[in-house]
Write a protein that binds this DNA or RNA. Structure first.
Lengths: 194, 194
DNA sequence: CGAAAATTTGACATGACTCAACTGGAGTGG
DNA sequence: CCACTCCAGTTGAGTCATGTCAAATTTTCG
């Protein structure tokens, strides 16, 4: 198992000595998913926190009519999984599914608690992750309230320039809250402007 | 200063002995706001975490054209303030302003750190708050993606039946992401259905 | 290659916005 | 206590953004 990407990600937020790095790496196990496979199904309790080493996934929720609503895209160096379900050990309200072949590193809730006790500064690291997720969401809400679908799409492209190549259009449409048809015309229009 | 409401709120999540209650209460100071006064201005660093004892406030953000976008309403037994700004001690991206005369209890960042060290289980309490805020936001995003303004309004009334009496209509409209005019017609239509 | 899924395109329908005018209540000053 | 002003809220006409439905086209993948 190669944990280098994971370690270097952690080092961006807190410092670690060799001992701590070794302990940290030893608590993770690796997992692979083929495109289309589930990391979590809605209703499952999320037992692991997962770090994306390579690949990409979407987090989404189904409404009463069975329509998918994409909440987020996860790529390399992001943490997948339903954070809320993981922390509270209650059933997840959303699903996470690979949209490319994906390799993950996973840590269980118990091992994470162990880690907190032995190296308390990891608590800070994971709290920072949570905070980032929180503020990113707040931005997302704010954008949805204040700007048009076209502007949202342009912002989205700025933040994730690789989006059109990596994510299916219908998932991007869902993430932005528009129909695939309307997204198609948006894309054409915006493409001509640039 | 009367901290009973605050203490009983904390006791819903963690247990405390008398000693701990006393310490906790001693770290808070009270603050009053008249209707219309600011708790935080956009751009300020949020120095205190505030618990609403009585009254209500709105958290909002202004866009480039100067339009308000209401992000949240805060009433009794809620925590006001920009959590992100408080935790990271960076300038707030939103403002919080009283819409009724309001009484708050406040704790500073330093005192909160002291509290964490002396009674570590408070760390859990505040982390739970954060998690709740996170999941509430995720619900909000999900609703915005999947349901119409009319349905959102009906859901909102279910969650906050007191809303029409306590909050100005234009603020509710902004919270739901519609114009005051359209909100007015929504209200009429939904009122007739019920 | 063939079938299924994703994307595009066009006609039409509707939800939500803009603008403008009107109503009614809450101060404020004379 | 009245007249005046100032907002918040309402109403209606016209418009634009986005959705729906249906069909054509392209891509994906077994």
């Amino acid at each position: 198992m190669n944990a280098q990407l994971l370690i270097s990600n952690v080092l961006k937020h807190i410092s670690l000595d060799d001992e701590e790095k070794k302990l940290f790496a030893s608590l993770f196990t690796s997992k692979s998913l083929r495109s289309g496979e589930f990391l979590i199904h809605e209703g499952d309790v999320c037992k692991y926190e997962s770090f994306v080493v390579i690949g990409c996934l979407k987090a989404y929720k189904e409404d009463a009519e069975g329509n998918e609503h994409v909440l987020d895209f996860l790529i390399e160096e992001w943490w997948a999984d339903d954070l809320y379900s993981f922390l509270t050990q209650t059933p997840s309200k959303s699903s996470v599914r690979a949209i490319e072949d994906t390799k993950l590193l996973q840590i269980s809730k118990d091992d994470l608690e162990t880690l907190y006790q032995r190296v308390p500064k990891f608590e800070r690291f994971f709290r920072l992750l949570f905070q980032k997720a929180y503020i990113a969401q707040r931005e997302q809400i704010n954008q949805m309230l204040s700007i048009s679908a076209e502007e949202r799409y342009i912002q989205f492209l700025k933040r994730k320039p690789y989006a059109l190549e990596r994510f299916p259009q219908k998932d991007i449409a869902s993430y932005l809250g528009v129909t695939p048809q309307f997204f198609s015309s948006l894309k054409k229009k915006v493409g001509q402007l640039m």
